Amino acid sequence: MARNSSALASKSLRGSAISATWPGRLVVYGAVALIGLALALAPFLFPDVRSQEVAARICVFIVLVASYDLLIGYTGIVSFAHTMFFGLGAYGTAIALKTMGPGFEAILLGGGLGVVAALVLALLIGLLSLRVKAIFFAMVTLSAASVMMVLASQLSDFTGGEDGITYSIPRLFSPAFELLSDAEGKAVRLFGVPLNGKIALYYFVFISALVLFLAMMRIVASPLGSVLKAIRENELRAEAIGYRVVFYRTTIFCIAAGIAACAGILRAVWLKYTGPDVVLSFDIMIDILLMVVIGGMGTMLGAVIGVVLMTLAQYYLKDLMALGAEATGSLPLVPDLLYPERWLLWLGLGFILLVYFFPSGIVGTLLGKGGQK
């Protein structure tokens, strides 16, 4: 009788947990589906230059943030060197395009060398440092990232120094290149948007980012993902049952580094410019951390939500505040509070509120995972 009652209680608890999380799952999956659809149709829904830049940046940063979540969210590795790997992919591509000319072979060779360099550095850092405690490993990666930033600034013959590198990309990605032309020789328009090289460039970034993101989703759903979670939850227990913790930690560190370098390739091709401020800056590392925390560590889909919210705030919060200040011009104090240059204040307050109401990140809280389970 006692067994039957405990079984019924267990079923009841499971049923209540499912009923508590299914609305959250619906919200999360629905939001991610809408974001994916908006990104897939971005050139036609948002044809202006600024909106396309925002959409392309979101695609690249979803890959970058998700690859960092493999480390901090799924394995419990705190690293400050992720922008270093991002920069290696970007600089490898930029240097090759500058020296070899605007061809796909330059992207393949330069980007490939950047990815290889990222893998080698990640392997060296992993083998030398992943045996130490978390805070000491974080300091090692921070030092490595700082060294890379100095090298990029000082080796101006190769990297362009503080000014960075500007270069041309393949003609297929040029706005002047017509993918399809009509009888008059003009570019065919779809929903009023000309099908030119700019469209091809965006979909090169979008499809590449989608493939990389799906590959990471497959990793976390595989047996490797289960091992990473076991290491995160209890490293000593994982080692005691036979898993080679250092091997797995080094492996995922290299995988994350390689994917971050691929994101750097996409960023370099899209921008046609690479410099320390756009790929190696510590501000980018802070943005990555904030995006992971906002979306939810150890959820992967949290990268999508976190990147979209943070990027939209960075690009459009000032505009919204300017509109608000103009609309409330007759009120006391409010226009001063909504002065556009104070956007960082409101961004910080918004982040505090998000952490308070979604302590495990938006996706982690809505899915009832506690962000780390």
Rank of each mutant, 00 (worst) to 15 (best):
S208Q: 02
I107S: 07
G225F: 01
A117E: 13
E233V: 03
I241N: 01
V140S: 09
S146D: 12
G225E: 00
M148T: 07
A117N: 13
F158A: 13
L195T: 07
S129D: 05
I231T: 02
L155T: 10
I165S: 11
G197S: 10
S181W: 10
A134Q: 15
D182F: 08
L155D: 03
R131N: 07
Y243M: 00
R244V: 00
G114W: 04
A238D: 05
M149F: 13
M100G: 02
G164T: 06
I219A: 03
L212H: 07
S156V: 11
V115D: 01
G225K: 04
V220Y: 00
L214I: 04
S146F: 13
E105Q: 11
S222V: 00
G164R: 06
G161L: 12
E233G: 07
L228A: 00
K198D: 13
S146N: 13
A200E: 07
A106L: 10
G164F: 05
R232N: 06
L179T: 14
L119F: 12
R171F: 14
R244E: 09
P102K: 02
T99L: 06
E105G: 11
A240F: 09
V120K: 04
G112Q: 13
V150N: 09
G111E: 09
I169H: 01
L190I: 15
Y167N: 12
S222E: 02
G225W: 00
L142M: 14
A215L: 14
L210G: 01
F137P: 07
A209N: 02
R171K: 14
T99A: 05
Y202I: 07
G161K: 10
K186P: 00
L123M: 15
L155S: 10
I207S: 06
L210V: 07
L179G: 15
S208V: 02
L180Q: 09
E233Q: 13
T141I: 10
L224K: 09
A221F: 05
G103V: 01
S226V: 11
S208C: 10
S181E: 15
G101W: 02
M149T: 09
D163Y: 09
L130A: 08
A117R: 06
E184L: 12
A152F: 15
R232E: 08
I169K: 08
F137W: 04
V120P: 04
S222A: 14
A221W: 06
A209V: 11
T166C: 07
A187Y: 08
A138N: 11
A117H: 13
D163F: 12
K186Y: 10
T141N: 07
A134D: 14
L119V: 12
L172W: 01
A187Q: 05
V140L: 09
L128S: 12
A187K: 05
F136G: 03
Y243S: 00
A138S: 15
R189Y: 11
A200W: 03
L113S: 08
G114I: 14
M216P: 11
V188D: 07
K133F: 08
A183V: 06
V147N: 12
I241S: 04
A152V: 15
E239F: 04
L180R: 06
E162N: 11
V220K: 02
I169L: 03
K133C: 03
I169G: 04
D163T: 11
D163N: 14
D163S: 13
E239N: 13
L224T: 13
L228Y: 04
A221I: 01
F158R: 03
Y167K: 10
L201Y: 02
Y203C: 06
R244A: 05
S129E: 01
